[in-house]
Amino acid sequence: MSETVRLYFDVDGEDFTSAGQASVQVKKSLRQLGIPPEIIRKVSIAMYEGEINMVIHAGGGKAEVLICEDCIEIRLRDQGPGIANIEQAMQEGFSTAPDAIRSLGFGAGMGLPNMKRYTDEMKIESEPGKGTDITMRVYL
């Protein structure tokens, strides 16, 4: 897999109003690179869900997007509380989001299943108290 383009973002966990900025930027870059719209759609939605999760559940983190010859890889790393039961977190409707987050329009427990649905590969590694690493791939 020969790496062509690499995008890197610090995702601020302090400020909810900025959540999603990295994904907007990635979408713009993918358009400029001439990536097909249906691929851009998948990458954008999966990354946006993951980025919002880092902000609301983990106090921010780091996002990296690698655009390779045969796939786009999205890596999300945070040092938040981690996910104790990944299988449970992957269920539609499971959410630990507080009411304050729900009043902002998130916290339906749909993000992780949606990320899985829009990507071809998804791997979650998480340790309670240490953080969460998510790697997703969309094939080109």
Partner: peptide
């Protein structure tokens, strides 16, 4: 909130 616009942008 700004996520309304960003969400709409993600969904084209």
């Amino acid at each position: 909130n700004p996520q309304v616009v960003r969400t709409a942008e993600m969904m084209d």
